[in-house]
Simulated scan of single mutants.
Amino acid sequence: MRDFEFQNGTKILFGKDQEQYVGRESTRYGKKLLLHYGGGSIKSSGLYDRVVSSLREEDIEIFELAGVKPNPRVSLVREGVIICKENNIDLILAVGGGSVIDSAKAIAAGAKYEGDVWDFYTGKNSVSDCLPIGVVLTIPAAGSETSAGTVITNEDGFYKRAMGHNNLRPKFSILNPVLTYTLPSFQTACGITDMMAHILERYFTNERNVELTDRLCEATLKTIINNAHTVLENPTSYDARAEIMWSGTIAHNDLLSTGRVGDWASHDIEHEISGIYDIAHGAGLAIVFPAWMKYVYKHDINRFVQYAHRVWNVEIDPFDLEKTALAGIKKTEEFFRSIGMPISLTEVNIFDEHIDEMAKKGTERGPLGNFVKLYEEDVRQILQLAK
């Protein structure tokens, strides 16, 4: 196990009707707030009215920026930065899922920066200060409600890039499982896949003697797997929704990273796919992760055997460890398929046209991953396996 520092300062308010406290939590950071959200779903559900009412009870002045799309765009972020600077905004409140929260984080960083916010995503500069962020979560998936990271897409060149800083962790996040009852099945399944992928990125490590975090990863994966079909078949099961929502937060709050180095190549490869084709991030991960597994499993077959046995209950064949490892990969694919996810690029109408471009762009800043270093040709072969 490696030495580590762990700090996650996000206050969590979890449970029914917790959004009623959003005004109380927001007023701790000032009286001018940018309310950031996506489309009309928070209005049709009544959540918008409840949030605004709570904010107004605390005499908070509200500015709004709607229109966040999946794979959030830097152009809208730049609009938000201008609003914050021109109106001396004190806090950004993100009401939505990972895309809204990631966009809010980018605005929060850009509002305290004299240059272009995209500089943070290209590595030209790093975050030193940002506005505080609050969250009312409506889609459990990305884990952005407590994470330090944000992912934004630049329409100029279709680049989808990530950056992170501890200052970007939200000050508070409100998690009410009831708010997820009306999510479409596909969106729920994409969220389940995304949170599983966050765990798998951490699980496949070269670090030894990490039994505790191995077991935490496995337990969180099994909790998601055990509740996934329940929330898809019975969307108003509070208990199952609560398990899924909290698992998504645990998957990406960095507790599972302690003492180990994760991989993250599959996320980087998926970013190239959704950057060009604008597909759902979870769907892209369901396609990429099994292909990545098939490409790298021989690097540490014992870890893949452990994964197959502990997560998927595959019986270990001591005379054929490869058979066991491959069975775990197959179980992963079968699960993604069972919740309605695609597991090949052709299923989402992606063929050979941009494979070379994606492999080149994905590795232009260096090799991807830590479990196995992947270069341009490696990424190309993984994308071919994903077809």
Rank of each mutant, 00 (worst) to 15 (best):
D239S: 13
L200V: 03
L200W: 02
E79K: 15
E61D: 11
P170Q: 10
L383D: 04
A291Q: 08
F289Y: 13
T363I: 10
E270V: 11
A141M: 04
G191P: 08
L221G: 02
G284W: 09
I152R: 10
N8L: 04
C130E: 05
V379T: 14
I269H: 10
S247K: 04
F335G: 02
D119W: 04
L383H: 08
A189D: 06
L131E: 09
D278L: 13
N313K: 12
E79F: 03
I279F: 08
F120E: 11
G340Y: 06
H281D: 08
I89T: 09
Y297Q: 00
E86N: 14
F63Y: 15
L34W: 04
K124G: 01
S103D: 12
W312C: 00
K361T: 10
K160E: 12
H267S: 07
D214W: 02
A240P: 03
L321S: 01
I276Q: 07
K360H: 14
I92R: 07
G259N: 06
I279W: 09
E218S: 05
G96L: 06
T10N: 06
A108G: 11
I82N: 11
L285C: 05
K330R: 14
D268N: 14
E322L: 01
R208N: 10
D3M: 07
Y113F: 15
E145F: 09
N349M: 07
Y29S: 02
N87K: 14
D268P: 00
G248F: 05
F371D: 01
V178S: 03
E58R: 13
P235V: 06
F371Y: 15
E315K: 13
A197K: 01
T213M: 09
V305C: 03
N234V: 13
D116I: 07
I273F: 08
G67D: 06
I224W: 02
I199Q: 02
I92F: 07
Y307Q: 00
F371C: 01
H354G: 00
A240N: 05
A141L: 03
T223D: 13
A106S: 15
H271I: 10
D3N: 14
Y295V: 10
K31C: 04
S247G: 07
N302S: 06
H267R: 11
R380E: 10
F158K: 14
L91S: 02
L168Y: 11
G30W: 10
E243L: 02
V314K: 09
Y307P: 00
A286W: 08
E357I: 12
D116C: 08
R78L: 05
D59I: 00
K171S: 13
F186T: 09
A242G: 06
E114G: 15
I224Y: 02
D254L: 08
G282C: 10
